[in-house]
Design a binder for these strands. Structure first.
Length: 267
DNA sequence: ACCCAGGGTAACT
DNA sequence: AGTTACCATGGG
């Protein structure tokens, strides 16, 4: 069946290619990607979103993945109390936070550091081809268990550079049980972050990305170079009160805003 | 040839 | 506690 719905705040380009996920492609207006063990085919035509060729029992999965229970219109109204956020939200009103798997988020954002989206995607694709289960529609993201014991040398074909040893370190801590990803759901933000930062190659920003995109901890605010510039330029005395509890979502709107407002013109 | 890419670590003050 | 070189790789 096809699952079809309308939503005022749902722009596939903004959601799938804003740097929160790395396995989606677009061809002639059709969006594709692999999420967990499911294949996504999505279109938006005349304002109507359609998820193609799924079973009815998969609808709750996709509703959850696309965070359909969250009222983004209401969030934008909240954020609009701030002048800059108001403009930022206007430009990118179709952004949503994807509720991704913690493991995929962890590995993906380790790879993302000091890297660009195109190359991040390539490295992740090679990782999936090497260690992920092969389906007729492509390779799944590897399971945690499949990557236990992996070494930086074995990961060399990924051409992930210095990040390979960080993946190896993460896998060793997961395998030993020093860090249990499923336990982190129940931890408060500070403790969760502390756990993730035990991993070599996971610092402030990567930890916040994993917490936001992998655990939906919306108070996690990934401070990338652009957000740092926004804070320095527009919020020298601190971020506005209206984003409290939803700093990470506000960050998504501000990221693009920063590149337009502060960018050097070629970004 | 040079610079940067949605950072982090180790080694310095 | 705050700064800085270095880290691999690929694209502009």
């Amino acid at each position: 069946m096809d699952y079809s719905f309308t939503c005022d705040n749902f722009e596939p380009d903004q959601i799938l290619f804003c740097g929160q996920a790395f396995r989606f492609r677009e061809e002639e207006g059709v969006y594709h990607g692999i999420v967990g063990d499911r294949y996504l085919t999505l279109t938006k035509e005349q304002g109507r979103i359609t998820i193609h060729d799924i079973e009815e029992e998969d609808i709750p999965f996709w509703n959850n993945y696309f965070d359909m229970d969250t009222d983004y219109k209401a969030l934008i109204e909240r954020f609009s109390a701030d002048k800059h956020l108001k403009e930022a939200c206007k430009e990118k009103s179709g952004i949503r936070i994807l509720r991704q798997s913690p493991f995929e988020a962890l590995i993906s954002f380790i790879i993302s550091q000091n890297n660009n989206i195109k190359r991040i995607s390539g490295i992740i694709e090679r990782l999936c081809e090497m260690y992920g289960e092969k389906k007729d529609f492509g390779y799944l993201f590897p399971t945690e268990e499949r990557l236990y014991g992996v070494t930086a040398e074995e990961l060399a074909p990924l051409r992930a550079g210095f990040r390979a040893k960080y993946i190896a370190d993460a896998m060793s801590r997961l395998q030993s049980g020093e860090i249990v990803l499923s336990d982190i759901y129940d931890m408060d933000y500070e403790r969760a972050k502390e756990q993730l930062k035990k991993i070599k190659g996971v610092g402030e920003k990567v930890a916040d990305c994993v917490l936001l995109f992998g655990y939906y901890k919306t108070e996690a605010l990934p401070k990338d170079v652009w957000i740092k510039r926004v804070i320095a330029e527009f919020y020298p005395d601190g971020l506005p009160e209206c984003i409290k509890g939803y700093e990470g979502i506000a960050q998504q709107y501000l990221f693009d805003y920063a590149r337009r407002k502060i960018g050097d013109g070629n970004g």
